[in-house]
């Protein structure tokens, strides 16, 4: 009986240990979120969203150009990344069961692990070298290429959630395959595809490394695709590694703005998956 008592004690101890692992894993999250919110909120003001950055010591100023730059870069990235990523995802879901499909799926999975800074160098080689200057376009291409593999896999998963019975019902009525795919399967999966796109956009908006030597940075407003462009993430980085307390404060506030942006995209995506799927799948 002593043995049984010991075995039970080990069982209880391991239950506690694994439970503690959950707590330990979540402590940094709590600390980080609390700190960003408490430190960042101090610098929030209307001018922070609308004004250009000011030099050290000058009061006021904001990250308006960087915020707009992030949106601009993500927009350019979508032009490159969405057709390729969503298209490849639809291919994987609709025709991806053969050998070619498996090879493409595997390639996408492996590519999704390629470090973002490597993709930045690729965009440098593709856009910056021929154009001989850093540009918003190069940043957009970097973020767009980065989107493709993950977007393809998420799109596939969400399109595959459409019940086979819907497709069969349509085919049984004599509707051709392509019409069934477009008007039945993809229309049903639209909510899922939008979710996948939002998640990809959220990821792209938080990227810094591939922008350092593609979009570079800019102290002013920029709308030209062939000029360097500021972004929220690069701005946070520059403020953080500067030696000025004033700029550190701005880094925290900009980080809060970035977290709110990324968080809003992620929450919208979650909400859409829950409400956008056909009823059987809820």
């Amino acid at each position: 009986m002593k043995l049984l008592a010991r075995r039970r004690a080990v069982n209880a101890a391991m239950t506690v240990v694994t439970g503690l692992a959950v707590v330990v894993a979540l402590v940094p999250l709590a600390l980080l979120l609390w700190l960003v919110v408490s430190k960042g909120a101090a610098g929030l003001s209307w001018t922070f969203f609308t004004h250009l950055p000011t030099p050290v010591g000058e009061p006021g100023g904001g990250v308006g150009n960087a915020l707009l730059g992030t949106l601009y870069l993500v927009g350019l990235a979508c032009l490159v990344g969405l057709p390729l990523g969503v298209g490849a995802g639809v291919f994987l879901a609709e025709r991806g069961d053969g050998r070619f499909g498996s090879a493409i799926r595997f390639t996408a999975e492996v590519l999704s692990g390629v470090p973002s800074i490597v993709v930045g160098i690729v965009a440098y080689g593709l856009v910056v070298v021929p154009m001989r200057r850093f540009s918003a376009l190069a940043g957009g291409v970097a973020l767009g290429l980065l989107m493709v593999p993950t977007l393809a896999r998420t799109t596939e998963e969400l399109v595959r959630l459409v019940p086979g019975s819907l497709r069969e019902a349509s085919l049984a009525l004599g509707v051709p395959q392509w019409k069934t795919s477009l008007r039945i399967v993809l229309r049903t999966a639209l909510g899922g595809i939008v979710t996948a796109v939002l998640l990809a956009i959220a990821r792209a908006a938080g990227e810094t490394a591939p922008l350092l030597f593609t979009a570079l940075n800019n102290q002013y407003w920029n709308f030209a695709p062939d000029q360097p462009t500021a972004s929220l993430t690069v701005q946070i980085y520059n403020y953080a590694i500067s030696p000025y307390a004033d700029w550190h404060q701005k880094a925290w506030t900009a980080a809060l703005v970035l977290l709110l942006l990324v968080g809003a995209l992620n929450l919208t995506a979650r909400f859409l998956t829950r409400s956008g799927l056909p009823r059987e799948q809820r």
């Binding site: 810094t208 946070i236 968080g263």
Partner: peptide, 16 residues
Amino acid sequence: LIETLAAIPSVVYGLW
């Protein structure tokens, strides 16, 4: 919560 941890941008981790 784990998904949230994964969604936080790298530069924010660096700042922290």
